[in-house]
Design a protein around this nucleic acid. Structure first.
Lengths: 246, 246
DNA sequence: GCAAAAGTGTTGTCTCTACACCCATGT
DNA sequence: ACATGGGTGTAGAGACAACACTTTTGC
């Protein structure tokens, strides 16, 4: 419990998604190598957030710790989606230089377990080890450090898949949200367009989406009704269905 | 390529499922400790198959290698379903004794990445490091060594989930199979009963299930038509659908 | 009063469920 | 001839896709 020693071959990487009612974003951190002495050129690029696990810590706890260090939030939705351990995953020149500069053995094999998490993005303030942390639109992410592009793509795929089959979209919205916001979320993440009336008919069948006696305020149009998600109602009524059609 | 050195903190465990047209089975290996000198009592129990990865080997290759050593088969369906790294996962007395007896450091932290695989079970001969390997009905599995019960349950859950949404059941059947065999497979794995006529109507809509001009032989009843699965047709027509209903 | 998003119904087509009998083969 | 699993159709209920107009608010 008080053992803070790090395990140097096992790490977690967190792909943190946020939604701003317009697009899906992901949190990335600047990686800046100024010192050319370690054998590479100076460079700046981007990584996911992550860390090595502590010797007495579970993977999930390590991911939650990264998330807490970053946002100060606890009990965030976290989902393990894959383990990444290719022999070459840290072998590009910039990555080798970075490992050397931060005092780690650039030759050692490190496995990273990926977790994605979903954040209702309003009112989150971000700080991480004095490094720059920023939201980037998912559609514009490219050229991440290490094998983080592979990890990121895998997370996105896992998220899309999960979103199709489980009610996790709500994790990206504030507790109270409008149906248009929910529809937009599905449209953006799944890259589809949906019909408003049909979407609402579908919603109407989901008993766990609860209409509140409350409306949006301060919008320059007819204010929308607010809804909330009830996990209890969902858990009571869940069923699954053969759907690998066509 | 020729580096055969083992990595001693990263391993894979394989949950190998087979189907005998009646029930779902899983491959387990005897773990037998005869020598009481290492500090525990002698015991016999069961484990999944698995191994440490080689220093220059990917996780998937390691899992494929375990499978090949066991069955002599290549190109088997393999799916990563989770990483297991609880601090206590190897800490039960029998596990500690076993690690000592096989010359490993019982205190070191080992991460295991789980793969499940699906085997058409007929005509497979099994050999593994001179240990006893056997099929066990999934419904009767209990008390596995290490944290293998956790891993096994997680694999089963992943398999069920995958089976609902992806056409992987065919991996458990011979290349040519009858519709009743396929239906039985779904019934057994998902623990449901299905209506024969409705099942067949559903199948009829799946263009990638191809009826052959061939029938069962040597059965004491009307011989069934044989079908086969075409992955090409499937890949051409796949689409997904919002289905987290009710 | 105008811009902007909210909210609402109908119709035709497809999919789901429930249910019972005859057929082809081996013994 | 009989036992065994193979194979087939229909009807009613629910879900899906396509489509356009009115309402409420802030400015």
């Amino acid at each position: 419990m008080t053992n803070k020693k790090m395990n140097n071959t096992i790490s977690v990487d967190c792909v943190i998604f946020g939604f701003d009612f317009e697009k899906l974003n992901v949190l990335l951190v600047d990686r800046e190598l100024k010192n050319e002495a370690v054998g590479g050129e100076a460079f700046t690029d981007l990584t996911l957030t992550g860390n090595h696990i502590l010797e007495n810590e579970s993977l999930e706890d390590a991911a939650a710790r990264v998330l807490f260090d970053l946002t100060g939030l606890e009990n965030i939705y976290l989902k393990q989606f894959g383990a990444f351990c290719d022999p070459d995953r840290l072998k590009r020149p910039n990555d080798q230089a970075w490992l050397k500069a931060s005092g780690r053995d650039p030759g050692s094999r490190i496995i990273s377990v990926g977790y994605y998490s979903l954040l209702a993005t309003e009112n989150v303030t971000l700080k991480w080890k004095g490094r720059n942390v920023k939201w980037y639109p998912v559609s514009e992410v490219k050229d991440l450090a290490f094998d983080h592009m592979v990890i990121f793509k895998s997370a996105l795929q896992a998220l899309r898949r999960e979103l199709l089959h489980e009610p996790i979209g709500f994790e990206l919205l504030p507790e109270k949200f409008t149906l248009s916001q929910l529809q937009k979320l599905y449209e953006v993440i799944l890259d589809v367009e949906m019909d408003k009336r049909n979407f609402r008919k579908k919603i109407a069948r989901m008993k766990y989406l609860i209409a509140l006696d409350e409306k949006q305020k301060g919008v320059a149009h007819k204010p929308a009704r607010l809804y909330t998600f009830s996990r209890e109602v969902y858990e009571k009524n869940r069923k699954e269905v053969l759907d690998f059609n066509i």
